[in-house]
Design a binder for these strands. Structure first.
Lengths: 147, 147
DNA sequence: TATTGTTATACTCTATAACTATA
DNA sequence: TATAGTTATAGAGTATAACAATA
């Protein structure tokens, strides 16, 4: 097995997932990437933008652009952080929670298909393998890069 | 195991791969997506744009935008197809082949890390699982979509 | 000094729709 | 009629760099 094949298979699977998700959510005017932000915000009452950067694997500037779009549509709100006045906390609005629930239902089939493509026991193994791949790729210097 | 976790793990792994690849190739002014196009062109002498759309999992318009960028930089060339005058064949130029070889060497560590994150026998299993996921997601109608 | 977030800016990828030309 | 590719257009995500305010 060659590394390039694995890279291409990973790319193809992710793009298929991403496009299928985008297609389902297009009617609601929410992108797959924005859905990831909304989903992260359901896991905790309020997160700082910094937290969200980590959870969504996004660049701070990219995240900000997405938050502004979501804020403009009334799905999220940003408030001053209670104790750290540099930070802002992000949370879902009532409208955002409602929109998310609908999007979650609409995307149920995608998650089902994802799982249906695998033997039941394989899914959790796959997740841990993907996480090991992430660990191997991030937080380690690139060849020839300045430390 | 929940489908959402799998989706998020897939996303995280792909983005890590994509960003690491982009970072390595940035000095050469080639993006990770353009690298995929160049790599596809090494597999066969000449491909039509249609062929490339399939091989790179791209939209025709997206692919065209990338080809124009690559053509402007002298890495690929497009010629009329020999027998189908609607089509154009795309191929690497001498400069493109040389650039690709360099990029391939520079990205060797990424592929090694990808494989190093897994047990040797697991890589091929992973590839086939990813392909089954793709098969489960594409070429089947979305719930509620018009046929 | 390091961190959080903003501003300004630019480019690539992405895709829809209408179109031409050819098979 | 279907297919290959183009044109026009728009938007989303991506990221770099310089910056202000605060920890």
């Amino acid at each position: 097995m060659r590394g390039h094949q694995l890279a291409m298979a990973l790319r193809e699977a992710y793009l298929a997932l991403h496009r299928r998700t985008d297609a389902i959510m297009a009617r609601s005017g929410v992108t797959a990437d924005q859905f990831v932000v909304l989903a992260s915000l359901t896991e905790q009452i309020a997160l700082t933008q910094r937290d969200l950067v980590v959870r969504t694997s996004s660049d701070p500037n990219t995240l900000r652009a997405m938050l502004i779009l979501l804020e403009r549509r009334g799905l999220i709100e940003r408030r001053p952080h209670a104790t750290d006045s540099r930070a802002r906390t992000v949370s879902l609005t009532r409208k955002g929670r409602s929109a998310f629930r609908k999007l979650w239902r609409q995307s149920e089939t995608v998650r089902q298909r994802l799982l249906a493509a695998l033997d039941p026991d394989d899914a959790s193994v796959l997740v841990s393998q993907l996480r090991r791949i992430v660990a191997g790729l991030v937080n380690s210097p690139v060849q020839g890069e300045l430390s």
